[in-house]
Structures are given as structure tokens and as C-alpha cells.
């Protein structure tokens, strides 16, 4: 564990807290993609199966359970809460799951460290996490007025990715045999997807304006 990794995890946790806070306090999920949230829930389920058979640290297990619980809580609010679900932009959130899940699954079957069920699912979760933000980015591009909490949620997720890359660079420099090319390539792709968003986020922040993405 290094400082970059800890910062990354904290930004990740903070992003989820901001989203939950937005949903609970405003009773609205306007601007949030249910597709992205369900993909994240799937990512966590596939990746954290190791909760059942391996133990790394109390911190790790605690965070894994927290991510799982919060992901399902968000999905539950957006799907089933009487008030919240009415604010969901169903017509705008049209990204097809299959376009993301199928290629990731195929890739995980071909490119993995070992061909076992848990290993393929773990690899699948790494690939899927890299692209799971796409429905959210597409939804934001379609939305005229992006509220601050939604913009901050995505910015915090981007910060989490950024710190994880610093963490990998640090681990590459300090640990022997740290050659995690599957994680690196997926991670860099994932972070690059945020680059465009961050550009406009910074512009609007500087101008002290509400975030608006160009069509």
C-alpha cells in the first residue's frame, strides 16, 4: 500500500458517496446512467469473488464489501425507489450493454493469466471497468444541464483512475516482478476516456460556469 493507491481508493469511495448523497438528499438520479451503475455492480461481483477464498487484509475486504453494497444500493434506488426512479433519464440512457459486455468477455477468454473461471471473471472485470463509464459519458453529452454533483461524481472517478496510474508507476519502480500488463493497458484506456471530460470540466471550472459538454 502506498500513498497514491490510498488516495485512489479514497477518491473512488468519495465518488460513490457523492452519488449516494445526491440520490438520497435530492431524491433524484437525473443525469446518472443506470447502465454505468449496473456495469459497475457487475464489475465488483466478478472481481470480488475472491472474498470467498482469499484474504489479503481487513482494509481490502472491508473496501470490497463496501463497494459491493454501495453499488447495489445505487442500482436499487434507481430501479425500485418510487420517487427516485421517476427522475431516471430512461430515454437518453440508451447505450447497449451487449456492446460493452460481449467484447470484454471475449477478450477475457482470450487474454488472461490462467484459463480458470475465477481468473477469467477477474480479467473480464478489469476490461469491463475500463469501459463501464461510457454510458455515463454519452448520457452527459446528451444532457443540456449537468448538475454539479453529477459533474463532481465523474471528476472524482477520474481522480481515482489518475491516482491508480501513479500507484502502478510507483509499484513498477519499487516492486520486483510487478508486470501487470492487463491491468495497465486497461487502466490507461479507462483513464484516457476521462481526458475529454476533464478538459471541459477544467474549462467550466475556470470560468466558474456550469458544466456543459459540446454535442
Amino acid at each position: 500500500m502506498n500513498l497514491f493507491r490510498l488516495c485512489g481508493d479514497m477518491f473512488h469511495l468519495l465518488s460513490i458517496m457523492v452519488l449516494l448523497l445526491k440520490i438520497r438528499a435530492t431524491r433524484s438520479c437525473r443525469g446518472i446512467s443506470l447502465k454505468t451503475q449496473e456495469l459497475y455492480a457487475l464489475v465488483f461481483v466478478c472481481r470480488y469473488l475472491d472474498l470467498f477464498y482469499s484474504f489479503i487484509s481487513v482494509y481490502n475486504s472491508f473496501m470490497k464489501v463496501t463497494f459491493l453494497a454501495t453499488a447495489f444500493s445505487i442500482v436499487r434506488y434507481m430501479r425500485y425507489d418510487k420517487v427516485v426512479k421517476q427522475t431516471y433519464d430512461r430515454e437518453q440512457d440508451t447505450f447497449r450493454y451487449v456492446f460493452l459486455i460481449a467484447p470484454c468477455l471475449l477478450l477475457a477468454l482470450v487474454l488472461n493469466h490462467r484459463f480458470t473461471l475465477t481468473e477469467v471473471l477477474w480479467t473480464f472485470s478489469i476490461y469491463l471497468e475500463a469501459v463501464a463509464i461510457l454510458p455515463q459519458l454519452v448520457l452527459m453529452q446528451r444532457t443540456q444541464n449537468i448538475d454539479n454533483l453529477t459533474a463532481n461524481y465523474v471528476a472524482l472517478l477520474g481522480a481515482y483512475r489518475g491516482f491508480y496510474i501513479l500507484n502502478w508507476i510507483y509499484r513498477f519502480a519499487t516492486e520486483r516482478h510487478y508486470r501487470q500488463w492487463i491491468v495497465w493497458i486497461s487502466g490507461v484506456i479507462q483513464t484516457a476516456l476521462y481526458a475529454d471530460f476533464f478538459f471541459y470540466y477544467a474549462l467550466c471550472w475556470k470560468a466558474n460556469k456550469r458544466l456543459q459538454l459540446p454535442a
Binding site: D9, H12, I56, N60, H113, N167, E175, H177
Partner: peptide, 10 residues
């Protein structure tokens, strides 16, 4: 050990 190192992140 390689696997442990690979999976100690979230």
C-alpha cells in the same frame, strides 16, 4: 506471490 501481487488492489 505473483497472483497475490496482482490482486491486492481493488
Amino acid at each position: 506471490n505473483d497472483e497475490w501481487q496482482r490482486k491486492d488492489e481493488l
